[in-house]
Simulated assay, not measured.
Amino acid sequence: MTTATVGNLLRTWRERRGISQLELAGRADSSSRHISFVENGRSRPSEEMVLRLAEHLDVPVRDRNALLVAAGYAPRYAHTPLDAPAMEVLRESLERLMTAYDPYPALVVDATYDVVAANRAVMMLLDGMPEHLLTPPLNVMRITLHPDGLARQIHNLREWRGHLLEQMQRQIALARSPALRSLYEEVAAYPVADRPGDTEPRESVPYIALPLRLEHDGEILSFVSSISTFNTPMDVTVAELAIETLLPADAATAKYLRSTGS
């Protein structure tokens, strides 16, 4: 099997992004001639140039190591397991963040949506979920879209499902992850039952973003989702973590959650 060269890999990432050699050269303070030479193997890029091109091509941190190795350099980014002693401070910080956000739901997921940490409010929403969906590792997409999971309680399921599947498609286009592609194919194939909320008139609440309308204990709770990642990560594990917080989308939801946390 032929080993991919750094030039071939860079060309692949450039074409995925739909960027011309001239445009990439302008972004990376280089020349289209040099970019062409790198891609066809006539010029070996410096380590700095590999990282600069990777940055402007928005190459995931995991794949930047592959570019460096293909160019003959050592990997720059560690890949430290989250349960390693070196990650203790990060784990503690995430737990503090989850606790501080309570009584509103917050969780941390990895690159394939497995739950790394979640607060009390999230677990409250999962109360009564079938055991086969709660077996570790918990996976947010399975829990949300499986017909035995939260899908039974989501009143705007078709809208929310469409939002989640589009989100996954964007990530697959960015990272080309086989594991994420497999998860997408699994959850996209789940049957979708019509819910009353899919056809009922929209409420007059001026939502700032598409809400998740979820029934819990006889109450209809409305949330908008916010996702955060780490700036300039220097570790693959950290780069692939995402913190999702569910903000109450109306006063009734905020009041209900505050009452459950008291």
Rank of each mutant, 00 (worst) to 15 (best):
60 P>L: 00
138 L>C: 01
75 P>W: 01
222 S>V: 02
240 E>T: 12
133 L>V: 01
25 A>K: 09
157 L>S: 13
45 P>V: 07
174 L>P: 10
242 A>C: 10
139 N>A: 11
41 G>F: 08
18 G>I: 06
256 Y>Q: 05
181 R>L: 15
5 T>Y: 05
245 T>P: 04
257 L>P: 12
74 A>W: 05
190 Y>K: 15
18 G>R: 01
11 R>L: 10
234 M>T: 13
48 E>C: 04
165 L>F: 07
235 D>Y: 06
79 H>F: 06
155 H>Y: 02
52 R>T: 08
243 I>N: 09
94 L>E: 00
92 E>L: 15
117 A>G: 06
142 R>C: 05
136 P>C: 01
241 L>G: 12
201 P>I: 00
115 V>N: 03
166 E>T: 05
134 L>H: 00
234 M>R: 08
124 M>P: 00
259 S>Y: 08
98 M>R: 12
117 A>T: 07
7 G>F: 11
243 I>M: 11
165 L>H: 11
231 N>D: 07
54 A>H: 06
9 L>S: 06
138 L>E: 05
105 P>E: 15
80 T>A: 05
127 D>A: 07
149 G>L: 01
187 V>H: 15
135 T>P: 02
229 T>G: 14
187 V>Y: 13
75 P>T: 09
36 S>D: 10
171 Q>H: 10
92 E>K: 15
160 W>M: 12
226 S>K: 07
91 R>V: 14
216 H>G: 01
230 F>K: 08
195 R>V: 14
53 L>A: 01
42 R>W: 02
165 L>G: 06
121 A>W: 09
108 V>T: 08
6 V>S: 01
183 L>T: 02
222 S>Q: 07
120 R>W: 07
203 E>I: 01
237 T>F: 08
59 V>R: 00
36 S>N: 13
184 Y>P: 03
43 S>Q: 13
36 S>C: 15
80 T>D: 04
107 L>T: 07
202 R>H: 10
127 D>H: 04
6 V>N: 05
11 R>A: 12
101 Y>N: 14
42 R>G: 10
35 I>Q: 13
167 Q>N: 12
184 Y>H: 12
212 L>E: 14
250 D>T: 00
181 R>F: 02
35 I>R: 11
3 T>H: 03
109 V>Y: 08
237 T>H: 08
189 A>S: 15
128 G>M: 04
